[in-house]
Amino acid sequence: MLQTPTEFKTQQERVYFQLREAILCGRFVPGRDVTLRGLAEMLNVSPMPIREALRRLTAENALALKDNRRVTVPHMTATRLEQIVEARVALETQAAMRALPHIDAAQLEALKTLDDSVTKAIEIQDAEAYIRTNLEFHCQLYSHGPNDVIMPLIESLWLQSAPFMRLVLNRIGLGYITDRHVQATDAIANRDTLALKLAIASDIREGIGALGQEELEAAIAAGRAAQT
């Protein structure tokens, strides 16, 4: 998922990508600490590769280190979420526009197929599948352009917001989601740069950007209660 290598050169690399995918899919619950030992047992590895993976993930602001043995998802507020949304809009619209000239007919069909998976996830109210397939659509789109500098920044923003998106979707459902990917693929087919920019911006703002402080706080409280 999201440019994960098919073969890992080291155990540290494998552990990093496993934890990264777990965060992106919302399997880390905001407000609940996890321990280094617990993660090591979960992945059946020694603490050393866990420490290295956590070092990288804390540097990406995906996790916060509470002490030398516990980590948690960083606290989220409506103000912080607004900043993440606006940063995503700025970077992802740029990435999409840079990719547009390089997308051929076969690649466009692949994007449409991915969007079918997004639509299916919304229909069956599967929050994890929606988050995963939605991010895969965006990642595949941007991967067609010269975005090597932008993509790590974008993925850092995804890591910061995905756990909260999962919590809220679990609580309120996916009924409020408007899939703007059809507008995006139509814009690609028509080579319409402005329409693509607007579709990507709307997709972000009407998704994660539509969450408010009340929804965040209620979802986090529910997530904590479910773990007790």
Results as ranks from 00 to 15, higher is better:
Gln3Ile: 13
Lys9Asn: 08
Thr10Cys: 05
Glu21Met: 09
Ala22Leu: 10
Leu24Tyr: 03
Arg27Cys: 07
Val34Asn: 01
Arg37Ser: 13
Ala40Trp: 03
Ser46Tyr: 06
Met48Pro: 07
Ala53Gln: 01
Ala53Lys: 00
Arg55Gln: 09
Arg56Cys: 08
Leu57Ile: 12
Ala59Asp: 15
Glu60Thr: 01
Asn61Ser: 08
Ala64Ser: 08
Arg69Glu: 13
Thr72Ile: 05
Val73Ser: 00
Arg80Glu: 14
Arg80Gly: 14
Gln83Tyr: 14
Gln83Trp: 13
Ile84Met: 05
Ile84Asp: 04
Leu91Arg: 09
Leu91Lys: 08
Arg98Asp: 10
Leu100Asn: 02
Ile103Gly: 01
Asp104Ala: 13
Asp104Phe: 13
Ala105Tyr: 06
Ser117Leu: 09
Lys120Val: 10
Gln125Trp: 03
Glu128Phe: 04
Ala129Trp: 02
Cys139Met: 11
His144Arg: 08
Val149Thr: 07
Ile154Glu: 00
Ser161Val: 08
Ser161Gln: 13
Leu167Asn: 02
Leu169Ala: 10
Leu169Gln: 06
Tyr176Ser: 11
Thr178Leu: 12
Ala189His: 11
Arg191Cys: 03
Asp192Ala: 07
Thr193Ile: 08
Leu194Pro: 04
Ala195His: 01
Lys197Phe: 07
Ala201Arg: 09
Ala201Trp: 02
Ile204Lys: 00
Gly207Asp: 06
Ile208Val: 15
Ile208Trp: 07
Ala210Phe: 14
Ala210Ser: 15
Glu215Asn: 13
Ala226Ser: 12
